[in-house]
C-alpha cells in the first residue's frame, strides 16, 4: 500500500549516550536516598515532630496526585477532595460493615476512587478550564451531601468509627510509627507514579494534551482515553491517602473528609512548587506544610494571616511555580523576580 520507503523508520542509530543514562537515573537515585533517610528518621523524632512529618508525607502524596491531572494534563480539578472522601469512606464502611482488614480495604478504596474517576471523568473531561474546575467542585460538594444522607451506611453527619480496638478491630491500630511508615509508603508510591509518568510515553501524551488538545489528537493520541486514565490515576492516589487518613483518624465525618480546604491546599502546593514537574509539588508540599506547622507554633494568633500573605507573595512573584522559575532562570541567566513577573503578566 505505502510507497513511502525513505520515510520508514530506521532504528540503527543509537539515541542514548552515557550522559543521558546518568540524567535518567539521577532522580531515582535521589528518591531512593531520600526514602532510606526517612526510614530511619521516625526513631529520632519526638511524637509531635513525628506527627508533623507524617502530615507532610500525606500532603506530598496529595500534591503529587493532584499534579497528575492538574499539572501534567492541565485539567485543574477543584473537586479533588471527592476522591479523598470516597477513599476514606470506602475504608471505614468496608471495615465496619464487611469486617475487612485495613490491608484489604486500602487497595479496594484505591480501586473505588479510580473507578469513580473514570465514571465522572468521561463526561466532565469534555469540559475545559473554569468549566471543568466548577463541575468537579460541584461533584465533591454533592458527594458530601450524599454521604451525609445515607446514615445507615456511612453514619451520616454524626460520623463513622473505624473499629481499631477490642474484638471488632479487623486490623490493630498502627500507632505513630506505623502511620509514619504507612504515609511514607504512600508518598513514595505517588512520587514513583509521577516520576514514571514524567518520563514515559503516557507523560508525553498528557503534556501534549495540556498544550493543545486538537494538536495532540492530530498526532495520534487518543485524548479521551489519556485524560480519563490520568484522572483515574490521580483519583486512585488521592483515594489511597483518604483511606489511610480515615484509619489514622478512627472517627471520620463528611465535613472533614470532603473539606474543600484540602483541595485548595493541594492546588496551592502544586502551583507554588511548580505544576507539571515532579520536584515542584514535592517541594511545595514539604515547604508549605512545614511553614504552616512552624507558624502555628510560633504565631498562634496570626499564623493563617502570615501564611496567606506568604502564599500571595509567592503566587505574584512566581506565577509559574518555584521549580519552573529556577529552570528558566538558569537557562536564561536572568534571576530577576521582576522580569519573571513581567514575563508571566496577565
Amino acid at each position: 500500500m505505502s510507497t513511502v520507503t525513505e520515510a520508514e523508520p530506521s532504528f540503527d542509530r543509537q539515541a542514548t549516550g552515557s550522559r543521558l543514562d546518568w540524567q535518567r537515573m539521577l532522580p531515582w537515585g535521589l528518591l531512593a536516598l531520600l526514602m532510606a533517610a526517612m526510614l530511619g528518621l521516625q526513631s529520632q523524632l519526638y511524637i509531635g515532630q513525628e506527627r508533623t512529618v507524617t502530615a507532610i508525607f500525606m500532603f506530598v502524596a496529595l500534591a503529587q496526585a493532584w499534579n497528575v491531572i492538574g499539572g501534567f494534563t492541565g485539567y485543574a480539578c477543584f473537586g479533588q477532595v471527592v476522591f479523598f472522601g470516597i477513599g476514606g469512606y470506602a475504608t471505614a464502611v468496608t471495615m465496619v460493615h464487611w469486617h475487612l482488614s485495613f490491608w484489604l480495604a486500602l487497595p479496594l478504596s484505591g480501586v473505588g476512587a479510580a473507578l469513580f474517576g473514570a465514571v465522572i471523568g468521561l463526561p466532565l473531561l469534555r469540559l475545559k478550564g473554569h468549566y471543568f474546575a466548577i463541575a468537579t467542585l460541584g461533584v465533591a460538594e454533592g458527594m458530601r451531601e450524599v454521604v451525609t444522607n445515607v446514615p445507615a451506611l456511612t453514619g451520616g453527619g454524626a460520623g463513622i468509627t473505624v473499629p481499631t480496638v477490642g474484638e471488632d478491630a479487623t486490623t490493630a491500630y498502627l500507632g505513630n510509627d506505623g502511620f509514619y511508615l504507612l504515609f511514607l509508603g504512600i508518598a513514595a508510591l505517588s512520587l514513583v507514579v509521577a516520576l514514571v509518568i514524567s518520563r514515559n510515553r503516557f507523560g508525553f501524551a498528557l503534556r501534549a494534551i495540556h498544550q493543545d488538545e486538537d494538536a495532540a489528537g492530530a498526532m495520534g493520541i487518543n485524548t479521551t482515553r489519556a485524560k480519563v486514565l490520568a484522572f483515574s490515576i490521580s483519583g486512585m492516589l488521592t483515594g489511597l491517602v483518604g483511606a489511610c487518613y480515615a484509619f489514622q483518624q478512627v472517627v471520620i465525618f463528611p465535613d472533614r473528609l470532603f473539606d474543600v480546604e484540602l483541595t485548595v491546599l493541594m492546588v496551592v502546593m502544586v502551583v507554588i512548587g511548580g505544576s507539571g514537574t515532579v520536584l515542584g509539588p514535592l517541594l511545595g508540599a514539604v515547604g508549605l506544610q512545614y511553614l504552616s506547622e512552624y507558624l502555628r507554633h510560633s504565631y498562634t494568633e496570626a499564623h493563617t494571616f502570615i501564611l496567606g500573605a506568604i502564599i500571595i507573595v509567592a503566587v505574584v512573584f512566581l506565577p509559574q511555580g518555584f521549580v519552573n522559575y529556577v529552570r528558566e532562570a538558569r537557562r536564561s541567566g536572568d534571576y530577576s523576580l521582576l522580569a519573571n513577573v513581567r514575563r508571566y503578566r496577565l
Partner: peptide
C-alpha cells in the same frame, strides 16, 4: 500548535510514539 514545554525534538517524537508505528 507546538507543544510548549517540550523541545523541538520531543514535539516530533510525540507523533512517532502515537502514530501508526506507535509500538516503538
Amino acid at each position: 500548535k507546538p507543544f510548549r514545554g517540550m523541545t523541538v525534538r520531543e514535539n516530533v517524537a510525540v507523533g512517532v510514539l502515537y502514530g501508526p508505528n506507535h509500538a516503538v
